[in-house]
Amino acid sequence: MKKILLTCAALILTAGFGTATASTPEEDKAAWDRFYQQRFPNVPEEDYNNGVYTIDKVGRENWEAIEEFPPYEPFIDAGREMWETPFANGKGYRDCFPNGPAIAGNYPHWDKETGMVMTLPLAVNNCLEANGEKPLKYKKGPINNILSYIAFESRGQVVNVEIPGDDPRALEAYEEGKKFYFTRRGQLNFSCAHCHLQTVGMVLRTETLGPAKGHPTHFPVYRSKWGTVGTLHRRFTGCNKQVRAKPFKAQGKEYRNLEYFLTHKSNGLELNGPGARK
C-alpha cells in the first residue's frame, strides 16, 4: 500500500514538472519551425530572414524597390569611418575585435566570465570604455552607424546562438527570455507571441504581422517611420509601448535575455542586416 502511494506521488510529481517549462531550447526551436511550416507551407525555410516580407507579397514589391537605393547606405559609410578612425589612445575597434568587422554572427552569446548575455552593442560599448572613450547610446544615434557597418560586413554569416550546457546560468537567461516572450503586458494585454506567433500573417488594420523567426537577422534597421536606422532594442521598446507597457532599459537584462531567446529561433538563417522597413 505504502509502495502504491509512493508511486502515485512520484507520478504526480513527474506530471507536474512535465507540464511546466521543461522543453529544451532545441525542442522549442523545433516546435517553432513546425508551427511556421504549417502556417506558411509555401515559404522556403531560408526566406524567413526577410521578416514580414517573407509573407507579405505586396509589401515585398515596395521593399524590393526601396532596396535598389538602400536608405541605410550612408550609415554603413559613417560606420566604416568610425571603424577606421583611431581612438584618442591610438587604438581602435580592430584591437577589440581582431576578427572584425564581420563579427555579427558571434552575437548574442553567453559570456561565462561576466555571467550574462553579451550582445554586439554591449561589446561595442565595452570596447569604447576600455579605451577611455565615451560609450554610445543604445537606441538612437551613432551606435547605429558602427552596427550598420558591422552588419553589412557580416552578411551571409549564419545565425548560430548556442545555449552552452556547462553553465546553468545560460539556460536560465534563455528561459527568462522565453518567459518574457509569452508574458502578457501593458494595458492592451498582449504578449509578443500574440502577434508574431498566434496571429502571424494576419492583418492589423493595414499591417501584416511578421513572423518572429527571422526578426533579429536584419538589425539595425532603417525604418521609414523613424527616418533613420535604429537598434533591435529600440524596436523592442517600441513594441512594449504599443501594447501600452512601460518599456525596459535598452541593453538591460530583460531585453538582452529576450534577444538571446529570440535570436536562437533564427538559428540557421543568414544574417542580412542592415535592413529597411516601413
Binding site: V203, R205, T206
Partner: peptide, 16 residues
C-alpha cells in the same frame, strides 16, 4: 475595433 475586426462600413479593417 477595426484594427482586428471587419465592422460595418469602417475603412481598412484588420482580419485577425
Amino acid at each position: 475595433c477595426l484594427a482586428c475586426h471587419m465592422m460595418g462600413d469602417g475603412a481598412y479593417p484588420g482580419n485577425i
